[in-house]
């Protein structure tokens, strides 16, 4: 099966800090990849490079068979325009640690904004689909609530619905439960498990090792901008080979 995301030797520096030091991953369609690692290990940066919220310094990223950010002509890579990058982003949906719901729009308006403004779909049709999505994340009653009127868990579920409304082939989750009060984590993870069961390809940066063990097809452990260990959840999280992985898991579970 053709992988839906391929990164090859991706490097990224922020000033003198090397955030990504040659990262290569492949994710087959329909799989769930969890990326774990200490903060500053580059896992969020990798996710943001896949969605072009960061520009990579070298290497290459393909999403759904398409080279990201550049057009190849002969032996040169030409940078794409703003509009072309925006179009490429439609392949993936992104969920942020801090939800980032549009504060001046209700839950329903947040969800239909992309379909109506970007994809130019009919408003009535977008609303119908948005209501189905709200139902799916269990928030039909909150369609007219503004983000400031919702709890963190509710906001994150609306954010997932907003990303799904674009009908992406791939969902990227950047620490989706890290900003939540402990009692609200479960409701968001439940929606994500449901999504994984439906066959969505997902890349999840997370500290929720339980979720990774239960849902992931593959787990990658990153540290200092590089992949330290990868394998099945059993291999990486239960029987890690590398000392750094063992230390991290011990620290998280402590």
């Amino acid at each position: 099966m053709m992988p839906i995301v391929v990164t090859t030797d991706v490097r990224k520096n922020f000033g003198s800090v090397q955030a990504l030091d040659g990262v290569s991953i492949q994710i087959p369609a329909g799989q769930v990849l969890c990326i774990v690692g200490p903060s500053g290990s580059g896992k969020s940066t990798l996710l943001r490079c896949i969605n072009q919220l960061e520009r990579i310094d070298s290497g290459a990223v393909w999403v759904d068979g398409e080279l990201i950010g550049y057009r190849r002509v002969g032996d040169k890579l030409y940078e794409l325009t703003d509009a072309e990058i925006a179009r490429q982003r439609l392949t993936s949906g992104m969920v942020f640690q801090r939800f980032n719901l549009f504060q001046h729009m209700t839950a329903l308006e947040n969800i239909i904004e992309g379909p109506v403004t970007v994809q130019k779909r009919r408003r009535t049709q977008a609303i119908d689909e948005a209501l189905v999505l709200l139902e799916r994340v269990g928030l039909s009653a909150k369609r007219d609530a503004y983000p400031s009127e919702l709890s963190g868990g509710q906001q994150q579920r609306v954010a997932i619905a907003r990303a799904l409304a674009m009908k992406p082939k791939l969902m990227l989750f950047d620490e989706p439960t890290s900003a939540l009060d402990p009692e609200l984590v479960g409701e968001v993870l439940a929606v994500m498990k449901d999504l994984a069961r439906s066959g969505m390809t997902m890349i999840v940066v997370t500290h929720e090792l339980g979720f990774a063990r239960e849902v992931a097809n593959e787990v990658v452990f990153m540290d200092r901008g590089a992949i330290v260990e990868r394998g099945s959840p059993q291999e990486v999280l239960v029987h890690p080979k590398q000392q750094r992985t063992r230390d991290f898991i011990a620290a998280v579970l402590a």
Binding site: N51, L53, R89, H104, G114, A159, M166
Partner: peptide, 26 residues
């Protein structure tokens, strides 16, 4: 908040659409 711009980019908005629909109203 910069997160608003990132969320707008993530749903495929261009810079000007982001400004008009998301940033300026707020």
């Amino acid at each position: 908040d910069a997160g608003q711009t990132e969320a707008a980019k993530a749903i495929g908005m261009t810079r000007l659409t982001t400004l008009r629909r998301i940033v300026l109203p707020q």
